[in-house]
Design a protein around this nucleic acid. Structure first.
Lengths: 248, 248
DNA sequence: CCTCCAATTGCATGTAACGCAATGGTTATT
DNA sequence: AATAACCATTGCGTTACATGCAATTGGAGG
């Protein structure tokens, strides 16, 4: 179904990690190079692909444009921006804003750490729900009646030695996240990084985003991280308030 | 050629200004709704489209991801980042980093003005070459032998009363931009905004990007703008130096 | 319970996309 | 300078794929 569209998208994905030549692209996508060329031509006409010179293909600006317009569409982002910056300044650590998309976390904004040792992350990056602090918060936002089912259905691969793969334990963590509006990731996603997250609610009380503070363990030990807890939840409450939510 | 791919991309464009329903989308791209649905399904599978609920389609996170990875690929961006920030802090006005893509300017980074009156712009946005300061600089980067031809071939619509539509005048401006590494836009793109730009060179001496300072005329009169000229060119020289260029 | 609106599926048709192989242009190699 | 290697591009014949239609399902609201 929509073979050529899928192939076109595959080409874009292939281009995501740098410029490629036609043959390489044809190869990685698994089509004849003439086919690849015709697809690329369409992509180029629409500005999704750019050719700096005749035998190199790169991603084009239509993509930047689209993505940034789409990010504008994430209303919470604009509201949160200033608050995230402030949290970043106060703590000096990396701050993320994340939303849920199906069974994944999507980072929609971030404030970089001011410390020399920075984590690598990128707006638009995605991560699993089960092993991230933001993920736990966002799962806590799933209506209680379907939450169990949702968590059960989730793929829960162990990404580090600390990843919670057990359904019961994870459900318990999510419940706690829901109660306390605070969740943790103790190196469950990346061995040497831990995070603390809290949720943002809109006017209807639905959790629409999560804010997290992350740092390499070498820079910030666990107790210090917990020490920022109230700052993080307060930030979320301020954002929620701007979105029209009143804490009952 | 690649009809379905083109249609798929058209769907993405249609989604760029907000969530839409299936029928609306089918309508705007001019296909039967069953066709639209099948295309959307492919887009959704690949994460380019997201359905928050069953009858709304939005742009998906694959797009954010792709775009931000592509932006990482613009090497000059990373190098420039800090310098732009500094220029922004020093001047308090909006700073843009732009590259050329065919016959357009693409903004790849920006630092927002600290003033209450902000201009609206967005990373990934595109603009014409002939009526922007960055555009003139980037055209100055076109090799001299083909420059005339390039400028001539350009569409030069008048966007404001001040837009230079005349080929000779524009060529002259571009030549001056090349000589002085400085170009101006006196409300030629947006009536009430003026800009000053300068170029960034890579190790081979090629102009790979332009840095501009923009402000609404009400905030900054023309002489004040010119007063920042040396700051802007110095910023570009620092960036160029980091890219391995030595001024001869 | 019925109505309305939007999403979805099955099916028959024809076109649009495909792979192939040959050509043309540019850059490296001897 | 000649040749090899690489990459992009085009014409062509074939068929798989995408399409529009019309009927069906599913949900929201009265």
């Amino acid at each position: 179904m929509s073979q050529s569209l899928r192939r076109g998208l595959a080409l874009l994905n292939a281009l995501a990690d740098g410029a490629r030549t036609l043959d390489q692209l044809a190869e990685t996508v698994g089509v004849h190079k003439s086919t690849a060329m015709r697809l690329l031509r369409s992509l180029e006409d629409e500005g999704f692909v750019h050719r700096p010179d005749s035998h190199r293909y790169k991603l084009g600006s239509a993509l930047f444009d689209l993505a940034n317009r789409a990010l504008d569409d994430v209303e919470v982002r604009e509201v949160a921006r200033e608050h995230l910056r402030e949290l970043g300044n106060r703590t000096g650590h990396t701050v993320h804003l994340a939303v849920r998309e199906r069974d994944q976390v999507v980072y929609v904004d971030k404030v970089d750490s001011t410390r020399p040792v920075r984590m690598y992350s990128r707006i638009g990056a995605r991560a699993p729900l089960h092993c991230t602090a933001v993920g736990k918060i966002l799962m806590a936002g799933v209506p209680e009646e379907s939450r169990r089912e949702f968590v059960t259905a989730l793929d829960r691969p162990a990404l580090t030695a600390h990843t919670l793969t057990d359904e019961r334990t994870l459900l318990e963590e999510v419940r706690r996240a829901a109660d306390e509006n605070c969740a943790l990731d103790r190196g469950e996603h990346e061995e040497f990084v831990h995070c603390l997250a809290s949720g943002v609610r809109d006017a209807r009380g639905t959790i629409v985003a999560a804010v997290s503070l992350s740092a390499p363990k070498v820079l910030l030990d666990f107790d210090e991280l917990l020490g920022w807890r109230d700052e993080v939840t307060a930030t979320c409450e301020r954002i929620s308030a701007e979105l029209g939510w009143w804490k009952d």
